[in-house]
């Protein structure tokens, strides 16, 4: 059993609007799973179904191989995109209340809170009201409340919105550490650079349908076009171009380089390897740049959404 969470053909309609259409995803244990998609694709609906806030019209959700039970909420930590705290309640009181709602005992919650407050250096906020804190500070509290009960599944919906870069990094490190300690993380975001940085698996949802999913490396491998970016130094650029053109498909490339050299994208045929290309090039020119073009998550996202 390698998947912590599985959704089987989950569908959900709101009136005449189809929010999710037979969406199946598999979230491997210990992974950071990126749930991607344009606005209004159905990500939040899927997350709400996993959190049992909304019930699916058909399909089911398995946690650890068993159908989701109302009691399972204590295994899930959820940081929604639309988030907030009671403004006039004190930080400590509020955190205790929310922890107890997740099924923790008061004493246990207090102890865990102390640990987290010290870790994030926010211990002296205990008796402050939320309305006295800045937005970023409140977000930190919100993060602590989400992870406090040590859930095995963490769901973050746009976790970095509202954080400054320093705090965003802090939270990112905490997420990675929690994963290393055994938690599984589902991560819904538009920010592709954090997907690139954090996620090892992704699923792409577009117009209520899942259109792509799997291991990020595998997906990239599938999306790569065997194209290499090269920088060549030669005396006669036009001649060199002609020589290469006879053997490979080329197009103009654009990257930063110290030398005023010939920049090309060279696409290999399926039976050729990078070594073949390199050998051929070194025979004809001096190679000072050689780089395989790997599609970024953002490229894959845009390309896939456009094709659908």
């Amino acid at each position: 059993m390698n998947n912590l969470l599985v959704t089987n053909s989950v569908s959900k309609n709101f009136g005449d609007f189809k929010a999710l259409n037979n969406v199946s995803i598999e979230v491997p244990k210990g992974s950071i799973f990126g749930l991607l998609g344009p606005n209004g694709a159905g990500k939040t609906t899927l997350i709400r179904i996993i959190n049992q806030i909304t019930m699916p019209d058909s399909g089911n959700v398995l946690l650890d191989g068993k159908p989701l039970q109302p009691n399972d909420i204590k295994y899930i930590g959820y940081l929604p995109e639309e988030r907030g705290l009671y403004k006039s309640m004190k930080v400590g009181e509020q955190a205790l209340y929310l922890a107890q709602l997740k099924g923790m005992s008061k004493a246990e919650a207090k102890q865990r809170l102390k640990y987290w407050f010290e870790k994030l250096e926010i211990g002296d906020w205990w008796n402050k009201k939320i309305q006295e804190l800045s937005k970023g500070m409140a977000q930190k509290i919100q993060f602590v409340v989400t992870v406090l009960h040590q859930p095995k599944l963490l769901i973050f919906d746009e976790p970095f919105s509202g954080f400054d870069p320093i705090n965003a990094n802090l939270i990112k490190d905490e997420i990675l550490q929690l994963r290393n300690e055994g938690a599984t993380v589902i991560f819904s975001t538009h920010r592709m650079e954090s997907v690139e940085e954090l996620c090892d698996h992704i699923a792409l949802i577009h117009k209520s349908n899942k259109i792509l999913d799997g291991n990020l490396q595998d997906i990239k491998r599938n999306f790569k076009t065997n194209t290499f970016e090269v920088g060549l130094v030669t005396e006669n650029e036009n001649r060199l171009k002609e020589i290469i053109q006879q053997k490979f498909d080329i197009s103009k490339a654009d990257f930063k380089s110290l030398n005023d050299d010939l920049k090309l994208n060279i696409k290999l045929k399926s039976n050729e390897t990078s070594n073949d290309l390199l050998t051929f090039l070194t025979q004809n020119a001096e190679v000072n740049h050689f780089n395989e073009l790997i599609p970024s998550a953002s490229d894959i996202f845009i390309q896939t959404v456009k094709n659908n």
Binding site: I53, I73, Y78, L85, Y86, K87, L98, L101, K102, V145
Partner: peptide, 17 residues
């Protein structure tokens, strides 16, 4: 209404019915 405007509702609703 306060719970809605302070946006805490979704946090709570993921713990209780």
């Amino acid at each position: 209404i306060e719970e809605k405007t302070s946006r805490i509702i979704e946090v709570i609703i993921s713990s209780v019915k």
